[in-house]
């Protein structure tokens, strides 16, 4: 039916292939964001309270991951793993690199969130008799979350879009799968249109949700 209406060589099999690619995209995003956020959280908490001589070097190293193109990071990691003889798949390499990349941004997100809590507010909480733990839970966490969450959502979406670069080291995610199909049926506009729609459907609702959250929280201030 699709053939008569659209006049395309795209088959249901192809769509299934792209869906699997989308699955890979989501899977990489999931692992990278999970690992990166945990690492970022720890580093962010550490940086917000660490002394300058620890802060500096950590900041410097993390900054490197933000100042080199992801594509090159993937290539370097892939070739390094071959050099030292590690038996990881390209998928694993991709996830690890993306996780470290995520962590480097997440650290700043967490740090900004914590620093957004005015020390005067925390002092007020402690003067009311709250313990350090209560202060953290009731005062710091909610305020930090309001600042950090919208940024974190943006970061996650950015990572999802960046998964497209993993195709360069041979992982077949959504974009690559579509390219494979295009080489066969030579309908780039149509296939890319579907892919674009897919990315849009994955990203747009989440980014709108994040914006609404941010607006709602800002209203209450």
């Amino acid at each position: 039916m699709m053939q008569t209406f659209f006049d395309t060589s795209l088959t249901l099999n192809d769509l299934w292939f792209m869906l699997k690619g989308a699955g890979v995209t989501i899977s990489i995003t999931f692992w990278a964001v999970l690992g990166g956020s945990i690492l970022g959280l720890l580093l962010g908490l550490g940086r917000a309270s660490a002394p300058w001589w620890l802060n500096g070097p950590i900041g410097f190293v993390l900054d490197i991951f933000r100042s080199v193109p992801l594509l090159i990071q993937f290539v370097l990691a892939n070739s390094f793993k071959s050099i030292i003889g590690l038996n990881w798949s390209a998928f694993t390499v991709g996830c690890v690199v993306l996780a470290i990349y995520t962590a480097s941004f997440c650290t700043e997100v967490v740090r900004a969130g914590i620093l957004a809590v005015p020390p005067t507010t925390r002092r007020a909480a402690r003067s009311l008799g709250m313990t350090w733990g209560q202060d953290l839970k009731e005062v710091v966490f909610p305020i930090a979350l309001r600042v950090a969450l919208p940024n974190w959502i943006g970061l996650t979406l950015g990572v999802m879009k960046d998964t497209a670069l993993i195709s360069w080291i041979g992982v077949v995610e959504l974009l690559r799968s579509s390219q494979i199909i295009v080489t066969r049926i030579q309908e780039p506009l149509f296939v890319l249109g579907i892919v674009g729609l897919a990315y849009f459907i994955l990203c747009f609702p989440i980014s709108r949700f994040g914006a609404r959250l941010e607006a709602r929280w800002r209203e209450n201030d």
């Binding site: 979406l157 879009k161 960046d162 998964t163 497209a164 670069l165 195709s167 974009l175 390219q179 295009v182 030579q186 309908e187 780039p188 506009l189 890319l192 249109g193 892919v195 674009g196 990315y199 849009f200 990203c203 747009f204 980014s207």
Partner: peptide, 22 residues
Amino acid sequence: ELARNTPAMFQIYMVYFGLGSL
């Protein structure tokens, strides 16, 4: 919204291959 919700790599493919088919 299109620029912000799709990967840069997709956008490059679209311009290079997509426009090519037109």
